[in-house]
């Protein structure tokens, strides 16, 4: 569980103790919230994963049966596969694309505010409207995409209705809708880089590339790291796109993991099994996050590292 190594156990100096107290005071709001609203339901879900809980009946304890059932469940493996493919493809693409757009948005361009707003618009439109739009854009007969392809003499696929292309369609959509948020975070990060650093590079005779390579990228690593972790967690838990558009089909081609959890929880009366699924996903996400944190010490640069 530990990403940052704990300080060695030793008697704390009065000053260190004072600082520690201050630290606890600062994180107190979160600790209170954790204990009051978050921890209970999470622990309850762990307990429920060892029960047969049909939602409208009280749960009955059944030990590890849910976890045993999981390994023989073909749909569990299918949903894991779909989610893994999606995560591996979309996370790096979203990260790179949004970084590029952020760099572009950080240039001296006329009407900068307007461009930034436009590029953020997909995040502002309600999800149902976007979902309908995509159904319409991806319509195999008349949709914009296939109409365009036809100009080039290509007969486009059935997209969301095709077992082969449905997942790809959702990946495509994620690039469109998933770029705005990390872009905004990158932009904020680019603002924080002091101009003095760039001036220093200039003094040493460095050009645009040198500035990018030796100032922008290192200074941005904490932000890149944040986006990496959060996009990864987000991709592993993706839900609303498949829920609104494909319902996991056709033939389970877009059965994402959290969609499968949701179906078990609220459609199949298998809340106990859904909880077990959720905890398995939790372990997977936690493991990957810890790995990424470990890896981050090799490439993330913090100005304030001295204060560790």
């Amino acid at each position: 569980m530990v990403a940052v190594p704990l300080p060695r156990r030793r008697r704390m100096s009065p000053r260190a103790r004072r600082e520690a107290m201050e630290g606890y005071v600062f994180i107190l709001p979160w600790l209170v919230g954790l204990l009051a609203f978050v921890a209970g339901p999470i622990i309850a879900s762990l307990y429920l994963s060892f029960t047969d809980y049909q939602v409208v009946q009280p749960p009955t304890f059944i030990g590890v049966a849910n976890y045993q059932q999981l390994f023989g469940d073909g749909l569990f493996w299918q949903s894991l596969k779909v989610t893994a493919i999606y995560t591996v493809v979309t996370t790096p693409l979203q990260l790179c694309l949004s970084f590029l757009v952020a760099l572009l948005m950080n240039q001296k361009v006329r009407l900068l505010g307007m461009w930034r707003t436009i590029y953020y618009v997909p995040n502002l439109v309600p999800a149902i409207a976007t979902a309908m739009l995509w159904l319409w854009v991806l319509n195999p007969e008349f949709g914009l995409v296939n109409t365009l392809l036809r100009y080039f003499g290509i007969q486009g696929p059935l997209w969301l209705s095709s077992t082969r292309w449905a997942l790809f369609s959702l990946i495509m959509m994620s690039l469109w809708g998933g770029v705005g948020a990390p872009m905004l975070i990158y932009l904020a990060g680019l603002q924080g880089i002091s101009t003095e650093l760039y001036e220093a590079v200039e003094c040493d005779g460095g050009g645009g590339w040198a500035k990018f390579r030796y100032i922008t990228v290192p200074m941005m690593t904490p932000i890149i790291f944040f986006n990496l972790v959060m996009n990864m967690i987000g991709a592993l838990q993706v839900f609303s796109g498949p829920y609104l558009l494909t319902g996991g089909g056709p033939a389970n081609a877009t059965l994402f993991y959290v969609l499968y959890i949701y179906e078990n929880a609220f459609q199949f009366f298998k809340m106990g099994y859904a909880s077990a699924l959720a905890w398995v996903l939790f372990i997977i996400i936690l493991g990957m996050t810890v790995l990424v944190f470990k890896w981050s010490s090799m490439w993330v640069y913090y100005e304030g590292e001295l204060r560790r």
């Binding site: 569980m1 530990v2 990403a3 940052v4 190594p5 704990l6 300080p7 260190a16 600082e19 520690a20 107290m21 201050e22 630290g23 606890y24 600062f26 994180i27 979160w30 954790l34 978050v38 339901p41 999470i42 309850a44 879900s45 429920l48 994963s49 972790v229 967690i233 838990q237 839900f239 993991y257 959290v258 959890i261 949701y262 929880a265 609220f266 809340m271 859904a274 909880s275 959720a278 905890w279 996903l281 939790f282 996400i285 936690l286 996050t289 810890v290 304030g304 204060r307 560790r308």
Partner: peptide, 25 residues
């Protein structure tokens, strides 16, 4: 910015709270 015992572990707990999918809580 503030050093206190358990900081790293608590931070991971913080992150862990968003790793449980909402349907089950």
């Amino acid at each position: 910015r503030i050093r206190f015992p358990g900081r790293g572990a608590l931070f991971m707990v913080l992150l862990a709270t968003i790793m449980i999918p909402y349907p089950v809580t």
